[in-house]
Design a protein around this nucleic acid. Structure first.
Lengths: 75, 75
DNA sequence: TTGTGACTAGAAGTCCGTG
DNA sequence: GCACGGACTTCTAGTCACA
């Protein structure tokens, strides 16, 4: 399982859990709407900075976000 | 405290804890020595992928690495 | 052993739009 | 509400010679 795939899964999952559209999430993260789409379609390898902003929007710690990635990747 | 600063601190700290030079760490990470130097001098915002590779070289989980960043940044 | 400038290639990330 | 694309700018990845 690739990192990009795990990221895609976690973003979609958390975004929907919070009942947000891509656009709403983008706004919260101070990002472009199409960039969220790119991440969910596994087209980008985000910087750590992006992970921190996304985690914040999901009201979780970045390490929790990363832990979810590890679980999905079986690390 | 900026993310780049926290990254710099953790890398230096863990590298020295393991008694490694930048060159030795670079070799373990499959990276160039000067790139490690760039990170330690806060000249790059690394991708998550880079964080995963570095954590692996320190024999720690990426989430542990990120947790250290949070602690330093008081998050 | 590390800092640094210079560099290229390509990726990150934005902004416009369409179906 | 989202996938997808083109065009674009900014920045990272990665390397080298040299101080």
């Amino acid at each position: 399982m690739e990192l990009k795939e795990a990221i895609s899964i976690v973003i979609k999952q958390e975004r929907k859990k919070n009942g947000m559209s891509q656009e709403e999430l983008a706004h919260l993260c101070n990002m472009d709407r199409t960039y969220i789409s790119l991440l969910e379609r596994k087209k980008r390898n985000p910087t750590l900075d992006v992970i921190f902003r996304m985690s914040n929007s999901f009201q979780m710690k970045p390490s929790t976000f990363v832990k979810m990635l590890e679980d999905i990747m079986h690390l």
